[in-house]
């Protein structure tokens, strides 16, 4: 019996000394900050089925997230687009599954393993006072209006995809979207539109959304089609009733 215990102790000691530790095959962990570790836990629960282990992607399910950066992650998670409910033409905005804090953890994790664009600390998106709205307007018309419409209300793309309305998007979300080019949106990186230009652009978007239409009710600012339909239905019906009343026998 004593020999058996001694043998067990020997085997145990040898194993402890020579075997790789349980976590040793994931050396990144040691390099991760506390936030990124929390993000990894969340990732391994909720994202791994489509984006794969270590965010390397799964064919026909989800793309690799190496190099997408924290801006992309926080945009997708905070707007509820990720996690997706199902594979379809476009991930839609919906109530987010994670708190902004958790989204930041996920962002930190993806940033730590692959790098990528981040929203610079230096740009003040909370307070848009002093931004050049006129410049922002020019930039919006050149770069954004073709898909998101002049009124920021969005529009159709091909095969069931669409450019979403910008009304529900916060300043930071708009910045992150330009930086990361979510889904079919082109990337507008900080070398193409500088952080200051992006701030001007966001200020312009917020301004035209807050500014009241000069002509009264704008019917969602979708343009001449809605207005034409409205005046046809409402106006013609009103005129028909008026004519009937004038011509009718009293």
């Amino acid at each position: 019996m004593a020999r058996f215990i001694a043998a067990l102790a020997f085997v145990g000691a040898t194993y402890t000394a020579f075997s790789p530790g349980i976590y040793a095959d994931e050396p990144t962990d040691a390099a991760l900050t506390l936030d990124a570790q929390k993000g990894k836990e969340l990732f391994d629960q909720s994202c791994i089925s489509c984006h794969g282990a270590n965010a390397q992607g799964v064919d026909d399910r989800g793309p690799s997230l190496i190099g997408v950066g924290s801006a992309a992650v926080e945009f997708q998670v905070n707007t509820g687009r990720m996690p997706m409910v199902r594979q379809e033409a476009q991930a839609e905005r919906k109530p987010p599954m994670f708190t902004p804090e958790e989204a930041a953890f996920l962002g930190a994790y993806i940033q730590a393993i692959g790098g990528g664009p981040e929203v610079p600390e230096s740009v003040d998106l909370e307070n848009l006072e002093g931004a050049d709205i006129a410049t922002g307007g020019t930039l919006f018309r050149v770069n954004c209006s073709s898909c998101h419409a002049f009124s920021t209300g969005g529009g159709a793309l091909s095969s069931g995809k669409y450019a979403p309305s910008l009304y529900p998007a916060s300043s930071v979300e708009i910045y992150q979207a330009m930086l990361s080019g979510p889904q079919n949106m082109p990337v507008f990186a900080d070398n193409q539109l500088t952080p200051d230009q992006k701030r001007d652009l966001i200020a312009y978007i917020k301004y035209i959304q807050d500014d009241q239409a000069q002509g009264g009710w704008d019917l969602g600012a979708f343009g001449p089609s809605t207005e034409g339909l409205a005046i046809f239905l409402v106006g013609i019906v009103a005129l028909a009733i008026a004519t009937l009343w004038i011509a009718g026998k009293s």
């Binding site: 793309l157 091909s158 450019a163 080019g181 079919n184 082109p186 990337v187």
Partner: peptide
């Protein structure tokens, strides 16, 4: 029309006036 709706994943350019791709 300006055909400048660029879909970066599907590599299509869309024209907003008559939906040419």
């Amino acid at each position: 029309c300006p055909a400048s709706l660029y879909e970066q994943q599907t590599n299509r350019l869309l024209c907003p006036c008559h939906q040419s791709q």
